[in-house]
């Protein structure tokens, strides 16, 4: 069993996202163990990109703050290597194709392996372009997470069949960000996926409240929360630890 699947051994998984380097790397470094202790089963660390086309305003702003504060891929690798000394849960990078491509995919994956990153999520590399990074990911034991969305339709089974780690199920149309209402049609997509794979399914995009998390967890093996956490960090800055700890604990509790 790969490390990522272990995140789904502790009841429904709570997957937490934060933007690396927002507002600075020391804050990210401090928050990762805080989130683990509060009950996060897996953490996605966003590598900030200048033009995050899949993100809503909250994560766009966080990416801008992180880049303005001097966050780079190299500094993130160093930071992850430091937190890995204590953090045991799986860690993923979420970023766009170009930061990986510019760094050199092979060099990137090697450094991921060396610092203890388990997988990557790259929203602008869809299933059809998976060959871009697939062979180097495999060579270095890095799992590439695929996404399905409410518009995936005919492609769900094909993607699910080849999925590894977990299947990232996008809850609704649009970009990342808090939504007051979530639709339920992702449930059908997950049913389709479950017929062809035993890879866990986690739902992300738009989830912010414990009630939403509990509801979405009833369809899936885990929930992913990003913008709500990033909003707390935007509000509390370097002193986010308490707010993030309480929030993560309440969310994990809601799906347990």
């Amino acid at each position: 069993m790969n490390n990522i699947k272990q995140a789904f051994q502790n009841g429904k998984a709570f997957i937490a996202f934060l933007t690396g380097g927002d507002p600075d790397l020391a804050t990210t470094e401090a928050l990762i163990p805080v989130m683990e202790t509060a009950g996060a089963d897996l953490i996605e660390i966003g590598i900030p990109f200048s033009d995050p086309i899949a993100e809503g305003p909250v994560i766009q702003a966080a990416s801008e703050r992180a880049l303005a504060a001097g966050c780079t891929v190299d500094r993130l690798f160093d930071m992850v290597a430091r937190v890995r000394k204590t953090v045991k849960i799986p860690l993923l990078f979420m970023t766009y194709a170009n930061p990986i491509f510019a760094y050199g995919a092979e060099r990137f994956m090697k450094r991921c392996r060396d610092c203890g990153i388990d997988g990557i999520i790259v929203p602008d590399v869809p299933f059809e372009e998976r060959e871009e990074f697939q062979s180097v990911c495999r060579a270095y034991g890095i799992t590439q997470i695929f996404l399905v969305s409410p518009t995936s339709q005919k492609r769900v089974a094909e993607i699910a069949r080849e999925s590894e780690g977990f299947l990232y199920c996008v809850s609704s149309l649009g970009v990342t960000g808090v939504r007051t209402e979530l639709q339920d049609n992702i449930a059908e997509i997950i049913r389709t996926a479950k017929k062809v794979t035993d890879t866990p399914c986690a739902i992300g995009f738009g989830i912010s409240t414990p009630e939403q998390a509990a509801h979405m967890a009833s369809y899936a093996d885990g929930v992913i929360v990003g913008s709500a956490i990033v909003s707390l960090i935007a509000e509390h800055g370097r002193n986010s630890a308490d707010a993030v700890r309480d929030y993560v604990a309440s969310m994990k509790n809601a799906i347990s």
């Binding site: 086309i53 899949a54 194709a97 929203p123 602008d124 590399v125 869809p126 299933f127 059809e128 372009e129 871009e132 695929f146 996404l147 399905v148 969305s149 409410p150 518009t151 995936s152 339709q153 005919k154 492609r155 996008v170 149309l173 649009g174």
Partner: peptide
Amino acid sequence: GGQYAPETMMSA
């Protein structure tokens, strides 16, 4: 070239 687009765009 290619098709480096988010999943939600692929069906369209």
